[in-house]
Simulated assay, not measured.
Amino acid sequence: MAAYTARVERGEQFWLVTIPEIQRTTQASTLREVEPMARDLIAVMQQVDPQSFELKPDIVFPSVAYEHWTRAAKLREESARAQAEAAKEARTAALALANLGLTVRDIGAMLGVSHQRAAQLIAGAAPDTALGAQATPARATT
């Protein structure tokens, strides 16, 4: 099966669709129209059925937005890592309090969560994460 690439770039008013293998260009009003327009162009120029070949779109992200989009993706990744670390620390704190003999109701009250959530945090903590918990009290600030 033949394969073609549809290089898609935003023009002033339309999406410009270039098929390098046949050195031809067409346009589309929306990204949704790109594939049918590219297939029609290739079918007419190569005299083949529009569904008889593979079409690989290569959409060029407009440069004015690309930097912002990649920064947003990086921030989402950092946020996910921070959220995972925060969850781990919450589980460790709950387990440390449980190791001090506090009830799940007291643990929930101290951590600002329900007693059911406190029990979940304790159950989800790795058994060795709070082994070093000391009985020295620390003041909680609220």
Rank of each mutant, 00 (worst) to 15 (best):
A28Y: 04
G108H: 04
G112F: 06
L97Y: 02
A126T: 14
A72I: 12
T26R: 02
P36Q: 06
L41T: 03
F14C: 04
A109L: 09
T25Y: 05
A73G: 07
A82Q: 15
R117V: 05
T26N: 02
R139P: 03
L121H: 01
A65M: 10
A80E: 15
V113E: 03
G124R: 06
R139S: 11
D128I: 12
A93S: 10
G11L: 05
E35K: 07
M45Q: 13
A28F: 03
R71E: 15
A118C: 04
P20E: 05
T136R: 14
K56M: 09
V44F: 12
T136K: 14
T136L: 14
Q27S: 09
A84K: 14
Q13N: 08
Q13C: 00
K74C: 06
A6P: 00
E77K: 15
E78Y: 10
S29F: 06
P137H: 09
R81P: 03
E35T: 11
R81Q: 15
A28P: 02
A6W: 02
V44G: 01
T26W: 01
S29L: 10
A87R: 13
M110A: 12
A140Y: 07
Q47G: 09
R76H: 11
R91C: 12
F61T: 07
E9L: 08
R10D: 02
T5S: 12
V60G: 00
P127Y: 08
R117L: 05
G124I: 05
Q47K: 15
L121G: 02
A118E: 00
A93C: 05
V113F: 04
I42H: 04
A72G: 07
A125L: 04
R139D: 07
A86P: 03
L100M: 07
S29M: 08
E21P: 04
Y66K: 14
Q83H: 14
E85M: 13
L55D: 02
R32A: 12
E33I: 00
D40S: 12
A3Y: 00
P20I: 07
I107N: 01
Q27M: 05
V8A: 03
T103E: 04
E21G: 03
G11K: 06
A6K: 02
A109P: 01
A3S: 12
V44W: 08
T18V: 07
L16R: 09
A6R: 01
R10V: 02
A73L: 15
A65R: 10
P62L: 00
R81W: 10
P127E: 11
E67K: 12
V44Y: 10
G112L: 07
T30P: 05
L121Y: 01
P50A: 08
L111C: 00
T142Q: 11
E77N: 13
R32G: 09
V17W: 02
A133T: 12
H115K: 08
E12L: 10
P20A: 07
E78C: 11
V34G: 01
T141K: 11
A130G: 08
Q134G: 14
A118P: 00
F61I: 06
I22C: 06
R10T: 01
Q134I: 13
A72W: 12
R76P: 00
A2C: 00
E54I: 09
I59N: 01
